[in-house]
Write a protein that binds this DNA or RNA. Structure first.
Lengths: 379, 379
DNA sequence: CCGTTTATCTTCGAAATCGAAGGAAGTGAG
DNA sequence: CTCACTTCCTTCGATTTCGAAGATAAACGG
């Protein structure tokens, strides 16, 4: 039934431009797609006939005739996305433009292993679909983020330190067996970066730092996610300059993670007799102006900033977006900025923006939507 | 006369695939270009009629009919390329496939300023063209490398530390005024990276380190050069871990360049009473098994490797190619390897190749040819 | 109010592209 | 040698895309 719908090929390109909000009218589609205006009109006609696009009033004039605004039809389809954490999963449904229809969080132990976890996620998808999506609207793609590296070639999880029982498990194949649809599996920090990228129009090269219990980072190059061999973006196991020496779980001394992650800060505070369980607790302490906490966070920011220094000189991003639960502590980003400004080449920092992440706590789910939309609308 | 030749548009794509050696037959062109085989045949016919392509015998069978091999016609055109150094310039002519017709090196002081230098280069181009290129063969592009950062937006040189008088000079405009053709201006390490990339087919992500008097680096992402804001690839002003403290010319303490560049090593050796003027002299000492020189180079390699560690985790390249005059000293690459293998994530080093550069001393000129070919054959 | 300008969108014949079918030229197995 | 099979390339009618011209709709400026 939904096998021959024009979501791929040239129509797919047009659909994607509307879904991502880059184009709102036939004229904009023509400019951005490179197709002739007449061809765009023909294809848009088809997309409207197929019930994927709809016309909705008119936009604002740019000095001439007002454009007839196009938007995605609600019946165009939905995407099911999840983001697996160590002890819980956030999951939900998005429309093709990436707007959430429903998002919820459930407890879920990733240590239960891949089969149990993924089946539980899929059951949750089915329940949400039954409750929130009318019968005629097709599910068009399924995606999930995982807290570990994913081999982009095989879509398997590889050497995940926090996912016992998942090593080399074919996550995508398992999901594809249940849903005969495009399936996405990606590292959670990468998903967050993909979600963040949409909030920085005009910026093609981004680094997105996730400062939470651990320290993650995703890289966007030329507007699309850089995967490398599956571990790209890792900054947590970089050696930092230090007087003392701490051994990291990875077996090497003085990793950034051992000094500046939420877990490391919590350990120091607990040692000092302050009760801390989650990174959010540290933020609370900082906002309450507890001197030790503030000093610790500032120190962590400086360390992260020193690592970023190397990467900024090398990669020359337009934007460094700082997210994660720890990023709510203001001194973090301030001291990251200070370290980068001080030490980087002027040419590299000339127009560099270092700012809080814009996509909010559902960034990873939104990122999964963005990447899935690509997969759904490509030949 | 050569204004309407089909080097752009769809024919340009085909021409480029042949010129870069990616395709040698109509069938390969069809596979790589995405066009239908019938369309490819038509366009190739046109290119042959226009004298840009030629048929040359047949290739080897892959189990069926033998392909009719296509190659670039010698009359298709030439590219004029140069690579400016501090005290000399290498320049020459390439055919469109990037093969050198003639390459020579001349003394040339970059401190004479942009006008004098560029005019001298252009005069040299004209002389080479008159001597080595028959009348019917058109010049299709001009490109030059410079030993400093280039703003990719304006093609001006920005804040060049070793190019007095060049700051903000519109190099591309100056050349374009003399040649009404596509003009390329690029940092020399970036050109080297572009040239090297062609020698690593199958590898999409490369870091190319140039270890000479200074330390340069170029980055190739998804097969094309990453420019960032013009300074991308810089690794020379990264802070290294050190007991002592050396102030770098950039004003910061403990830059990699101050410890591991050819200039830094030469300074130490001279201090110790060993006569050294160029990085090549250091290589000679190492090959003669002079212990101090070997130990110094090994130390430099380890320091470079420690910096690369961070970048390998972050960027996950397929290949790190090490070139530059100092790279001829074997211990350099060996100790870079050791540092990277020891400290990087296994996933990042799993299939990583760290190897000597393959493109030789004309890498930058060949890279200029590759990038110019792009400019010439694009709409 | 009424032309001028600008931008959006459609119409329609020309051109480019596709894809199915088939011919050409090879390999390899019996 | 013959026959099946593979790959390469061309032919030709169908489809898609283009681009010039015009229709539509609004802003702007007397």
């Amino acid at each position: 039934m939904n096998q021959r719908l024009p979501v791929q090929g040239p129509q797919g390109d047009l659909l994607r431009l509307v879904a991502t909000g880059k184009a709102e009218s036939r004229a904009e589609l023509a400019r951005l797609s490179g197709l002739a205006a007449s061809s765009v009109s023909l294809r848009v006609e088809e997309l409207i006939d197929a019930g994927l696009l709809a016309e909705e009033g008119s936009g604002t004039s740019r000095g001439g005739r007002r454009p007839r605004r196009l938007r995605l039809s609600p019946e165009a389809g939905v995407l099911a996305v999840a983001d697996l954490g160590a002890h819980h999963v956030r999951l939900g449904l998005l429309d093709l433009s990436g707007s959430p229809l429903v998002i919820e969080e459930r407890p879920c132990e990733i240590s239960d292993g891949p089969r149990a976890t993924l089946d539980r996620v899929a059951d949750a998808f089915d329940a949400l679909l039954a409750e929130h999506v009318p019968a005629g609207t097709p599910l068009r793609g399924v995606g999930t983020g995982v807290p570990g590296p994913v081999d982009p070639a095989t879509l398997r999880v590889v050497t995940p330190s926090r996912m016992p029982g998942w090593n080399d498990f074919p996550v995508a194949d398992h999901l594809a067996a249940r849903y005969d649809l495009p399936v996405l599996v990606e590292n959670d920090a990468n998903l967050m970066a993909a979600g963040e990228a949409r909030h920085w129009p005009g910026s093609e090269n981004l680094m997105v730092v996730k400062a939470g219990t651990g320290i993650g980072c995703g890289v966007v190059v030329n507007g699309s996610l850089h995967r490398g061999r599956g571990a790209a973006g890792d900054i947590s196991h970089v050696r930092v300059r230090s007087d003392s020496s701490i051994l990291c779980a990875c077996g090497h001394p003085d990793c950034l993670e051992a000094y500046a992650s939420g877990a490391a800060l919590a350990a120091v505070l607990t040692e000092a007799g302050v009760e801390v369980t989650r990174p959010a607790d540290i933020v609370t302490l900082v906002n309450d102006a507890v001197p030790e906490a503030t000093s610790l966070v500032r120190n962590a920011g400086r360390r992260i900033g020193e690592v970023l220094t190397v990467l900024v000189n090398f990669f020359n991003p337009d934007v460094i977006a700082v997210g994660g639960s720890l990023s709510a502590a203001e001194p973090l980003i301030t001291s990251i900025r200070a370290a980068v400004w001080e030490r980087c080449l002027p040419l590299a920092t000339r127009d560099l923006e270092i700012a809080p992440a814009r996509a909010g706590r559902d960034a990873a789910l939104l990122g999964a939507g963005t990447l899935l939309l690509e997969a759904v609308t490509r030949p």
